[in-house]
């Protein structure tokens, strides 16, 4: 059997049209999850098939693509997806947030503010923010139709009653343009404020769950909270051991089995850009950090 010939960006044109129509409806109804006939992709469900389908439907030969996972361009799944598009679409790829026109991401939003004209594509495992409160699709669909988000408020309030504060640290629900409650994908809540009034177009693809949703540029995105318990982004209270950044999201790295640890930027492009601009922590210096 000869190797089959695949179309530009892998997907056939009929599939791209179907996904493109879903993307347009998603943009017109910010935060609403548009069902789409997700295809079986040559990579497993749960590994970014939704994001890959959205990226494949929008990507053109003039685009410059960046793919990150956990904020890093060099994690294995990011490498694998970037290679997939380099191969099937022949597009230029980059690790630079600044240079990219399309950024596909899993679990992070880059530290460098996104700009007008850029598109960020999120890989989403469970698009339904109410799913863990109500497993039934028919029921959650009804709740969205009625904009009845009491369940979510009760859940967050119970957190406060039990723990003294809201115990959700990632996939922290947001309300889009004062209407739909939306799952921002499993990004840490540190990234939530970046979604609000963002100049870039934000697209979300959930392949296994067959949903696409969107936030147009300059849209109000509010993290759910209570007046007496306002939303607070969280980061390890530390300094990047490589570039000295004190404002980015940090990964804790365990350095030995005697409790030694250090913090480094989760966004590798941000860290490298800072270091090449001269911000280098001297060798041997480690960040003590600690937790707030």
């Amino acid at each position: 059997m000869n190797a089959p010939a695949y179309n530009f960006a892998y997907l056939d044109e009929q599939t791209k049209r179907m996904i493109r129509r879903a993307i347009l409806k998603a943009i017109a109804i910010p935060g609403y999850q548009v069902p789409f006939a997700s295809r079986e992709m040559p990579m497993p469900y749960g590994w970014g098939t939704g994001g890959v389908q959205v990226t494949a439907a929008i990507l053109g030969p003039h685009d410059v693509l960046k793919v990150i996972d956990q904020g890093s361009d060099d994690t294995t799944n990011a490498v694998s997806i970037r290679k997939f598009f380099a191969k099937t679409a022949g597009v230029r790829t980059t690790t630079s947030t600044e240079e990219a026109t399309v950024i596909q991401t899993r679990h992070r939003i880059p530290e460098r503010p996104l700009k007008a004209g850029q598109v960020i594509v999120f890989q989403v495992p469970i698009p339904e923010p109410l799913r863990f409160l109500e497993p039934r699709e028919t029921e959650t669909r009804r709740l969205h139709a009625l904009a009845d988000y009491g369940l979510m408020q009760v859940k967050l309030y119970e957190d406060i009653a039990r723990h003294g504060h809201i115990a959700t640290t990632f996939a922290y629900p947001v309300r889009v343009d004062d209407r739909y409650v939306m799952d921002p994908s499993p990004t840490p809540k540190f990234d939530n404020p970046k979604m609000d009034n963002c100049p870039a177009l934000q697209l979300f693809g959930a392949g296994r769950e067959k949903r696409i949703y969107a936030i147009p540029p300059h849209t109000r995105v509010v993290s759910l909270d209570f007046e007496d318990h306002p939303f607070e982004p969280y980061r390890h209270d530390g300094t990047c051991a490589l570039c000295g950044a004190t404002d980015g999201y940090l990964d804790e790295v365990i350095t030995d089995d005697r409790g030694g640890r250090m913090f480094v930027c989760s966004d590798t492009d941000y860290c490298e850009t800072r270091r090449s601009a001269g911000s280098v922590v001297k060798a041997g210096a480690t960040s003590e950090g600690g937790c707030a």
């Binding site: 044109e13 791209k16 493109r20 943009i27 439907a57 929008i58 053109g60």
Partner: peptide
């Protein structure tokens, strides 16, 4: 060129809807 023409038209329409 159906593939690349459709892609570039789509991006214009997507951009138009994203920036009403």
């Amino acid at each position: 060129d159906p593939v690349l023409s459709a892609q570039s038209v789509f991006r214009s329409v997507m951009d138009a809807l994203a920036r009403p």
